[in-house]
């Protein structure tokens, strides 16, 4: 059931939307905690010459300077882009927009709910997700520059 190899694109979008949603949620929780630690509390910033702030900054930057986090961020970039655009597609569909209209059945015609517009947004979400990967690879690792 997890890998719907014989089913249509919409089924893949359903599975991917769930997986990306869960993973991005995990990232979101960690991101809120990490940025909260990063500012280190108000007192850090009140004492010039801000030695505490500098220490916090260095400490956490060292912790985050790790290929595992970099690879993770690239994957998160892919997932956020996909989930966002595919989620927009699903919202439109759930409100009955961008789907075909019901009609008399044409034999062998693809279902009206798999409209070209819907399919197009799905592929745009994939394309944007790939772009996000390229962008984040470039930003984090300088793969393209090398």
């Amino acid at each position: 059931m997890l890998f719907p190899s014989r089913y249509s694109l919409e089924r893949w979008s359903y599975t991917l939307q769930r997986i990306t949603g869960v993973v991005v949620t995990l990232y979101f929780v960690l991101h809120v905690i990490e940025t909260g630690n990063f500012v280190g509390g108000p007192s850090v910033w009140y004492v010039p010459p801000y030695d505490y702030a500098r220490a916090y900054y260095e400490e956490i930057r060292e912790f985050l300077h790790n290929p595992v986090f970099d690879v993770g961020l690239v994957i998160i970039g892919w997932m956020v882009a996909f989930h966002a655009v595919n989620g927009l597609r699903l919202t439109l569909a759930h409100f009955g927009i961008t789907l075909g209209r019901p009609s008399r059945v044409e034999p062998e015609a693809p279902p009206r709910s798999f409209s070209p517009f819907q399919r197009a947004i799905f592929w745009i979400s994939i394309a944007l997700a790939v772009f996000a990967v390229v962008y984040s690879l470039n930003a984090l690792m300088g793969v393209l520059a090398a």
Binding site: P4, Y7, S8, L9, E10, R11, S13, Y14, T15, Q17, L90, A93, H94, P111, S113, F114
Partner: peptide, 11 residues
């Protein structure tokens, strides 16, 4: 329903 569309595919 999350619009997985499998119903329409197999009908």
């Amino acid at each position: 329903c999350h619009f997985a569309g499998s119903c329409s595919q197999v009908c």
